[in-house]
């Protein structure tokens, strides 16, 4: 379970978060929506300590990560994975080595076992023939899928998705949605930052709207879809920025 309490963050004179509070239950997928620059990604990055909170707490499995050092955060980062918007693949490594990186760092698996695990995962993600390619020769959709595969290879409890379908064609969007649903079926907790409302409605249990540095509006997809005057429905139609 993840619990965020009165989280505040500012950059210079810009107050991005003014006391954000929410929680995500084990196995639940929370959608996080909001206008561009509203601080969704900053909030997501803060959940694994990539950004430091100015005040407030972020409690993951009973531990407040805002008080942790980089060394202490390593344990959390093995359990909470982050799927970057652009994949953030290491461009000096092949797809195979990108996926092998967390396994070589954090497990005692033999190279033959690593190879098998990676091949299985690449097959599952529809990337069976790309293990020897470098990230530069992959399409945006493939990079995102490899990034997601790398994020989940250590079998984390929670996955943070940063705009996983942004800029993708319908085929790749469909692929990513299916992967998120498959992970959800395995009882993985998820937080999904997105602008893609159909994907949010499809994969999320609840959707939260981050507006003016606050996250007070949280609802189930069905409630939003049935109420055209719901603030999230209005946002989805482009009437709130």
């Amino acid at each position: 379970m993840i619990e965020v309490r009165r989280f505040k963050k500012r950059f210079g004179s810009k107050e991005v978060h003014r006391g954000v509070s929410f929680h995500v239950e084990q196995g639940e997928c929370l959608g996080l929506i909001g206008g561009s620059g509203s601080g969704k990604s900053v909030l997501l990055r803060s959940l694994i300590g990539l950004e430091k909170a100015d005040s407030g707490s972020i409690v993951i499995e009973g531990q407040d990560i805002t008080q942790m050092t980089e060394r202490e955060l390593i344990g959390i980062r093995k359990k909470v994975a982050y799927a970057f918007q652009g994949g953030a693949l290491f461009d000096s490594m092949t797809v195979f080595d990108n996926l092998a990186y967390p396994l070589r760092e954090h497990t005692d698996l033999k190279e033959s076992d690593i190879k098998k695990k990676i091949r299985d995962l690449l097959f599952e993600f529809g990337l069976a023939d790309s293990e020897n390619l470098f990230p530069g020769s992959l399409s945006g959709g493939m990079q995102k899928r490899v990034g997601l595969a790398r994020a989940i290879i250590l079998n984390p409890d929670t996955i943070l998705y940063d705009e996983p379908t942004a800029g993708l064609d319908p085929f790749n969007t469909r692929k990513i949605s299916e992967m998120i649903l498959r992970l959800k079926a395995k009882k993985k907790t998820g937080i999904l930052v997105t602008h893609d409302m159909p994907v949010a409605f499809e994969v999320c249990d609840r959707i939260a709207l981050l507006v003016h540095g606050n996250l007070d509006i949280i609802a189930k997809p069905k409630e939003i879809q049935q109420d055209a005057l719901h603030p999230i429905s209005i946002f989805a139609h482009g009437d709130i920025t």
């Binding site: 990055r45 694994i48 300590g49 990539l50 980089e70 955060l73 390593i74 344990g75 980062r77 093995k78 994975a81 982050y82 970057f84 953030a88 693949l89 290491f90 990186y101 967390p102 760092e105 954090h106 790398r150 994020a151």
Partner: peptide
């Protein structure tokens, strides 16, 4: 960021 996010 990815290096950090992957616990290294």
């Amino acid at each position: 960021d990815a290096i950090r996010a992957l616990g290294t």
